[in-house]
Amino acid sequence: MSFADLLAPETSTAITLAVYALAGAIGLMGMLARRIAWRRAACALSGAAFVCQTLILALGAHGAHPGGLTLGAYLQMLAWFILLCGLALWVRFRQEAPLIFAALLGLILFLMSTPWLELAMPLPASLKAPFFALHIGALFLSLGLLTLAFAAGALFLFLERRIKSKQRMRGIWQDMPALAILDRINAFCALTAFPLYTVGIVTGLFWARPVFGSAFTGDPKEVVSILAWLLLAVLFHNRLANGWKGRKPARLAVFIFLLSLFSLVVVNAFMETHHAFVRG
């Protein structure tokens, strides 16, 4: 098999998918069996999966498709951004759980991407180059952070409820990060996601004027995205100015992520929107 064959979307996806699967499986078994060595091995494999996928993106394997980027390529890029955020949290907080969660989610996105590697989604010429780097890149990175903020917030709420109801922590729950660590992870993700999300929103509105005739057209994608941005601004402000901690920011982070997921899946796929090109 030649090097060019290895870079083909199908082959490179299979290789990266295998590493993702190993990372996810070993990480999950390590959590269930409470084996720290397995969890650390899963983190190392997650790093290897990130390197494999980075090589795919850097060498432009997906860009070789004659019709442009495919739906599968978009899903794989989202997996890359989520894994990047998981690695950042692992380096900063030395917690395996967020990275293992990111690897498992990346595995799911890769599995979803496989049937769609040939479904080309050519962008309009006006939405290429700097637009793609600033708008899509900033939004995908902020979505990766919001995904992990959601995970930390949801786990915080679940564990806090168990503690308050005096339920015993057994098995896997004993190895979960402490509530204070989960709150710090939530805060880090929210405070980092807001400026990135702002860049994504501003560049989208900036390029919308020459393309659609107005910066704001009332498109469902724009409405939901701006609503999510406003809620994220509330979370950002209260974290910094009012010292929000605990349950309130956790609940708001969960809601913002669900709203973003609604925008990404329901609006893009089922509503009349300028972003209908993602349907192929």
Rank of each mutant, 00 (worst) to 15 (best):
G137M: 09
A215C: 04
L127M: 08
A120P: 07
V234S: 12
R168I: 15
P98S: 03
L22R: 05
F212H: 14
E10K: 15
G72R: 01
L240T: 07
E272P: 03
S2T: 15
T13V: 06
W38K: 02
L232D: 09
L83D: 02
V211A: 14
Y20C: 00
F270Q: 00
S165Y: 02
T11F: 10
K164P: 00
M31W: 07
L231A: 11
L55W: 12
V265E: 01
F212A: 14
A37E: 13
A152M: 03
A58V: 13
A178D: 14
L57M: 11
E160Q: 11
T203Y: 14
L45S: 00
E96G: 04
Q167S: 08
Q95C: 06
L104E: 13
R168W: 10
A103M: 06
P249D: 06
G153W: 04
L196T: 08
S46M: 07
G280K: 00
A88W: 11
R239H: 12
L157Y: 01
I82G: 00
G63E: 11
Y197N: 01
A208E: 08
F110E: 09
L261S: 12
Y20V: 00
L240V: 11
A125W: 05
V278N: 05
H237D: 13
F262W: 07
G200D: 03
A61T: 11
F156N: 05
A73C: 09
S165N: 07
K164A: 11
T198D: 03
L235V: 08
I163R: 03
L191Q: 14
D183R: 12
I256L: 03
N268S: 15
L55I: 15
F194K: 09
L32N: 03
R168Q: 15
E222V: 04
E118H: 14
P195E: 06
A129G: 12
G144D: 07
A276C: 02
A64W: 07
L6N: 00
L157K: 00
G106K: 02
L84M: 15
T198L: 15
L107I: 00
L145C: 04
A64M: 10
G200I: 03
T114C: 06
R247I: 13
M77E: 12
S113C: 06
A18C: 12
A97V: 15
F257G: 00
L134M: 13
T217L: 10
S113Y: 08
R239V: 01
A138H: 02
C85L: 01
K128C: 03
I136V: 15
H274C: 01
L17T: 02
A18Q: 05
L159F: 01
L55T: 10
W80V: 00
C85N: 08
L75V: 02
A138N: 04
P66Y: 09
F216C: 02
A151Y: 09
R247A: 05
A269K: 13
L240S: 07
A187S: 13
V234A: 15
L139S: 11
A151W: 11
L182Q: 04
P130T: 10
A233Q: 08
A37N: 11
A79V: 07
K128A: 06
A120F: 08
L191G: 10
P124T: 12
F212C: 08
A193P: 06
L105S: 07
A253C: 05
R209C: 07
D219A: 06
F216T: 02
K221G: 14
V254Y: 05
W173R: 11
K245L: 04
L191H: 11
L17I: 00
A190N: 12
P210M: 07
A14T: 12
A21W: 04
I100A: 09
Q167G: 04
